[in-house]
Design a protein around this nucleic acid. Sequence first.
DNA 1: CTGAAAGCGCTTACAG
DNA 2: CTGAAAGCGCTTACAG
Lengths: 335, 335
Amino acid sequence: MKSKITLKELAKLLNVSISTVSKALHDSSEISPKTAKRVKELASLHNYRPNPVAVNLKKSRTGTIGVVIPNISNSFFARVLSGMEAEAQKHDQQIITYISNESFEREKQICDMLTSGMVDGVLIAVSEETQKKQQYDHLFALLDYDIPVVIYDRINLGLPADKIGVDDEKSFFDATKFFRAKGLEKIGLASAIHHVGIGQLRIKGYKKALKDEGAAMMATSTKPDDLKKKIRDLITEKKIEALLCTDFESAIMATRIAYEEKINIPEDLKLIGYISREIAEFLTPSLSYIEQHPQELGSNAIEILNNRLDGKYESGKFEEKIIATTLIHLESTKF
Amino acid sequence: MKSKITLKELAKLLNVSISTVSKALHDSSEISPKTAKRVKELASLHNYRPNPVAVNLKKSRTGTIGVVIPNISNSFFARVLSGMEAEAQKHDQQIITYISNESFEREKQICDMLTSGMVDGVLIAVSEETQKKQQYDHLFALLDYDIPVVIYDRINLGLPADKIGVDDEKSFFDATKFFRAKGLEKIGLASAIHHVGIGQLRIKGYKKALKDEGAAMMATSTKPDDLKKKIRDLITEKKIEALLCTDFESAIMATRIAYEEKINIPEDLKLIGYISREIAEFLTPSLSYIEQHPQELGSNAIEILNNRLDGKYESGKFEEKIIATTLIHLESTKF
DNA sequence: CTGAAAGCGCTTACAG
DNA sequence: CTGAAAGCGCTTACAG
């Protein structure tokens, strides 16, 4: 049970001053090679590690990044976090995780706490509830305290901060075009997130790619039963040939309804969903999906934050980076 | 852009000493109500928040807990993390997330870094690779530095630390008994994790519940192709009536193979898997599964760590808590 | 009731 | 080349 050794203790053992020890360990040119060697040997013998809290206090930074995640059970966010962690590790930064559970109150609490300077910067995907309320004061508070914020994934909220997201609009534009190029005409869309930013962008892309907006056939609702009814209508009554789903919930519902109604996928109905690979690949039949490259998004978020912290961006001007999605064809879009 | 105000600055503005300000803000009885009031008013006007780094340095603790996660894409761990975060929040503690990606090297790196005292304690699910190597020196290093460790989920490794896990053995014992009670005789098991602790426990429970060990019909392999072949054999040649899967991979494979071989679930084959609710519910047909209550596991892990930190446990003796799993019946076990 | 001082563990400009 | 001193922002025993 070796308790941690400090600079002071090392200094005493070596009969030199604390300053000397500190400098020696930092390879300062001020220190004679001989002393440097003695110091380093003893330090490694005792397995000396500088107390990170003290170092941070001295440097007035924390080496720590706060990440606010709306919903960690969504494997998209889990993978974003993984990308962030990997990138942070390269810079010896720590990630402190906060989960808002899509709640405005919790998100506000988190941001309030973060204004105390616990972290050098914050990465956040704004919760659904906050988007609905359109109350962003807690985010402005962070900026007021000079804590840089990078908004990730859910970016089209008009907030003055650096942003990293995905080409939501283009992804569905392309997917819709893909179906049209294959000669399909009755292309539907299902969404449980039509009320939030990313949902709206996806819908926008879909509509733009149609012959005209009148051709849109959409099932949208935040209420599961309602959504289910609308999707069923699209599939059985409107007899759509292809369906784009903006989110996990609607994609799974559609698969399920097709199964119940004995509509074969992909023979009778093509399906594309905004769901993560883990699930897409393992559904039966497997579901073609939009790959959002979450890990890349995560590592980019960290990079942008670090650039901001390092003063590489002009203050008052904000970065906005968009990652290209990829449409992955699995069984549900076989022609 | 208010930059953070400090005790010193408040003191100057109020024409009192730093000590007085500090005491006033801590409701010390030493301070006159009048001064206390003045101080508090100015503090809240300036939105004073104590610098957490300085407070921690003073208190020689960090208010921070390190969590090592083997694989965050596994939604079980994502939900465990969510439970930890919620519990930590109640105690004003921060969670620093580290992802080992089931890699021994990475896990060792993480533990080495944590010995520097970045965190008050560590929660870890030991990586698969580490379990294979059975090298736990990096964990002992943490204990050497007096950093308490709680092992979660993957607990039967014989390590001297507090533990919180799930009744892996009993869960499969019960599940097997359930099938036998229904009169089934050919009960198989599939596993891609037969080589790690939790896999072994599940297999043990299964075997114990059989009439005799000779009745065991198992498909185990870490190689996907090999495992697939063995499961197919169990299903088509051995004509098992029920299959227990110890993990996500084997469960999904089994579903898929049944689909390809036109074996109907649950009519021709009952299936139970160790997979998470998110996926189980949405498969077609939905898959009966063992609910492990990951959030509860997470919050308990934090509680145990905090009890340890608070000296509520005898040192040298270790807690071991087991959470009861629940068998959730969905479509795949309909009789 | 208030304040000066020491100290948490470190870094670094400055003096010698 | 080495060390004393100041300081990061806070807390708290002690003196007055």
